[in-house]
Design a protein around this nucleic acid. Structure first.
Lengths: 226, 226
DNA sequence: CGGCGGCTTGATCGGTCTCAAGTACGGTGG
DNA sequence: CCACCGTACTTGAGACCGATCAAGCCGCCG
């Protein structure tokens, strides 16, 4: 559950009052107006699979993973969410995955019922909710294509995906552990580590530290990305 | 592209006129009113990946597969759609997958722009479009969980999924080939065949013919379904 | 009866997992 | 600043599962 005793009343109405009415009809604006800030520490659960999906979340700072655990303990990471990303939106009443903070996180929390009520009056908002779910669908469909590839292709695709989302030059700063990556790619931690080292020995990538990676040969990675 | 020269004008307005106005606001009713019937022969493409997503499709009779082909020729089947299912709805402008008729198919074709226009006026319709995308998202998320399992677990999950969707006693009639199943499960055709035969030798299933399977021990399958 | 596509079966190969150590790193306390 | 600890990551050797390659079989249709 929401690991806090904060009151989730409408807060954070800090946008300039001069803003036009039209602009506040945009989802981004509404999120700011209807949201409450919250923080989560590393590895703390934000919500659990099967819990009522009452809120959605927008990341201001930090990173989040969603995941499911199978009966035998195997874990599948559904996705990683970084600053600016939204997660936790469901069409169903319950969350399909659990969500945890990968690093210390600052989130905006929005009550789903408030957004849905707004969508009933404002068609643009309804479209944006639909588009959010559609974007999530695309991501998951791409994820499936990952899972039929070999280890090197999966790791390459992962690096390119991360590089695209954190476009700070050619260096990728990974907030997640090798275990998180392995569970995202459907590999073991050992295979992920070996594959990364293999890419390094081929001068395709270079490690600043184990979680800071410089992409030295992006086209070689893209070639692996089938 | 739409492999036909039929005119896609509004047709099929065959519902009883006594039907209430409220009822026709339901998506099901609208589909019938705004749709055109079409038929596709076995293995014929209904739409291609990357083509404009102008229509969605509801299956009256037959079965459809959606798929992507990677650069090296590997094919991933995204899903199977049976009578009563809807497919081809996108939030994006283009289809993410290709779609083909598995068997001779009778479909209802609905213009997306007509539905979207209706959704702008009728919030219930907007909700149902959102819900359709949400249901698709769930299916794909479940599919990911499949792909991290071993061969026997994947095949068992596939059989249970099909049994659920064609609930004619304990017998499952598979419209798709072993190759389709293999590409759906991320396995080879040989592994699918071997695994099915192995389940047969364990008396978990029984073949009437290669595409007619009787589930003899559903709980054994469920146990494999982690 | 012959041929072809779909399916099965067998033998071998290879990629990833598993099990088991070993190493680097960040943090904490002296 | 260093010693220590625990966690995260790396590296190696061997086993195993599913892929690959190669025949053969079955059922259907001309």
């Amino acid at each position: 559950m929401l690991a806090t005793d904060r009151n989730l009343s409408i807060k954070n109405g800090v946008k300039p009052q001069a803003e036009t009415q039209a602009e506040t009809h945009e989802l981004q604006g509404m999120v700011d107006l209807m949201s409450a800030p919250m923080t989560f520490r590393r590895n703390v659960e934000i919500y659990g699979e099967g819990e009522p999906a009452e809120y959605l979340y927008k990341i201001q700072i930090g990173a989040v993973r969603t995941y499911k655990v199978l009966a035998d303990g195997r874990r599948q990471v559904g996705g990683f969410y970084l600053a600016g990303d939204t997660f936790g939106l469901e069409t169903d009443a319950e969350h399909a995955f659990s969500a945890e903070a990968i690093s210390e996180c600052k989130l905006l929390v929005i009550k789903r019922s408030a957004l849905v009520a707004l969508a009933a009056r404002d068609y643009d908002v309804a479209c944006q909710l639909w588009a959010l779910t559609g974007a999530e669908l695309r991501k998951v469909q791409d994820h499936i294509l990952l899972l039929i590839k070999n280890a090197e292709e999966r790791v390459a695709a992962f690096l390119l995906e991360m590089a695209e989302r954190v476009p700070v030059g050619a260096t990728v700063e990974l907030p997640m552990s090798r275990q998180d990556i392995a569970d995202y790619l459907g590999l073991t931690i050992e295979t992920v580590s070996r594959t990364l080292r293999h890419l390094e020995s081929a001068s395709t990538i270079q490690f600043s530290s184990s979680r800071r990676i410089v992409l030295r040969n992006r086209s070689a990675l893209a070639r692996l990305n089938t």
